[in-house]
Amino acid sequence: MKKIDINQFKVTEKIQLKNISTHFDLKADKKRIESELEEIREKLGDFQNTIYAHGKYAVLICIQGMDTAGKDSLIREVFKDFNTRGIVVHSFKVPTELELNHDYLWRHYIALPARGKFGIFNRTHYENVLVTRVHPGYILGENLPDVHSIDDVNEAFWDKRFDQINDFEKHIADNGTVIFKFFLHLSKDEQKNRLLRRLRKADKHWKFSPGDLRERKLWDDYQRCYEDALNRTSNDHAPWYTIPADDKPTARYIVAKILYDTLIQYKDIIEPELDAGIKANLDTYIDELKNE
């Protein structure tokens, strides 16, 4: 199987999505790819136990992509070997009335993982510069004091919002959160195939909404907004990775590989040593239990 350099997927300079392939050939069949994923998945599960015991870092994994990009199944397959006590998944939908009564980052801030835990955002705070940018009328629902009409949702508004997102991520990174941001880069043709599959398979019907087709008509608008977001918010402390997503097993393997290869670079994340006094008396404790 082809070895990969995880940095080839990292956004480190200005990109154009049209020039980035949605397919990546690992030179292996599906069975081999899934076997390699299982191996990395087990290692990630072991690392999760270590970071939980260490208790000084949190890990935030942000997953974005167009409809049908494979977000849900990626989460299911990559994190299958995690202990549920150490990972929390949040799927952000249309903001509730309560959420709209707070600033747009509030619901994401309160969902952040505690130190020692992994948190996954399935759709993220970036919806606030993606969906709302394609549909600026949604901003009016936030009831902001300086937005009175669509005319106020201008480039200066988006510049400010990008600055706020960058500041938010820098703040949590400085306080011990390791941030990964994955854009599942899907082709329009593959999205069509996956939507057709949803319509043809009865057990997939629940996933389909007519709104999927309405949003598909805005594909180019979304691609421009994604491209701008990736270019303006990929930083050393919170990098974006563009993941070729036309083949789901390949996308899952690449994400797992990026996570593991990056996290093992944190040499300070180790299981804590037992207190010297406790360690010196282990045999005593064992005898006490055996002789109950």
Rank of each mutant, 00 (worst) to 15 (best):
N7F: 04
N83P: 04
G141S: 06
A280L: 11
Y266L: 12
G277I: 09
V59P: 03
I6V: 07
H54W: 14
F121P: 01
E215F: 11
W206S: 07
H148N: 12
R216V: 04
D247S: 13
I63E: 05
E292R: 11
E99A: 07
N49E: 13
L274H: 12
K43W: 09
T84M: 14
S21T: 09
E155L: 12
E271D: 14
F183W: 00
I110H: 04
G45Q: 09
Q16C: 13
I51L: 09
W240T: 01
K31E: 13
A280V: 10
F121E: 02
D103C: 08
P244T: 08
Y104I: 03
G45F: 08
I179M: 07
R224V: 08
Q8P: 00
I63F: 09
R76P: 13
K80C: 15
N49G: 14
T262M: 06
L130Y: 00
A238W: 01
I6W: 01
L100E: 00
R197F: 15
R198P: 03
N122T: 03
L186N: 01
G86K: 06
G45W: 12
Q265V: 07
A69M: 12
R133E: 06
R232G: 04
R194L: 10
D72N: 12
V78H: 03
H108F: 10
K43P: 12
D189N: 07
A256T: 03
R214H: 14
F183T: 01
T233S: 15
V131Q: 02
D268E: 15
D246K: 05
L186S: 05
K56W: 14
R224K: 12
Y266S: 11
I150H: 07
F79Y: 13
F162A: 03
A238H: 04
L186G: 01
Y226V: 04
V129C: 00
A256C: 01
K160F: 15
I286L: 10
P210V: 00
I20C: 05
Q191F: 08
V129K: 02
E190F: 06
P113K: 00
G45A: 05
D103V: 04
E36D: 15
E190K: 14
K217W: 11
D159S: 06
A69H: 11
D275F: 08
E42I: 14
R232I: 13
K290C: 13
T242L: 03
F157A: 04
I286S: 06
P113Y: 01
R123N: 00
W158F: 14
L105Q: 01
T284C: 03
G116L: 05
M66G: 08
Y222Q: 14
V129I: 11
R161P: 14
T84N: 15
T233V: 06
P113H: 02
Y285W: 15
V178I: 15
E271I: 05
D261H: 01
W240I: 07
K170C: 02
D212G: 12
E215L: 06
C62P: 03
D159H: 10
E99W: 10
T250A: 11
N19R: 08
D275C: 09
W206E: 13
Q64S: 15
I61V: 14
E34G: 11
A238F: 00
R200Q: 15
T233H: 04
D261V: 05
S149Y: 08
Y109G: 00
Q191M: 07
K27I: 09
N122H: 05
G176R: 00
E36Y: 10
H102D: 04
N101R: 14
H102Y: 11
F82M: 08
G137K: 12
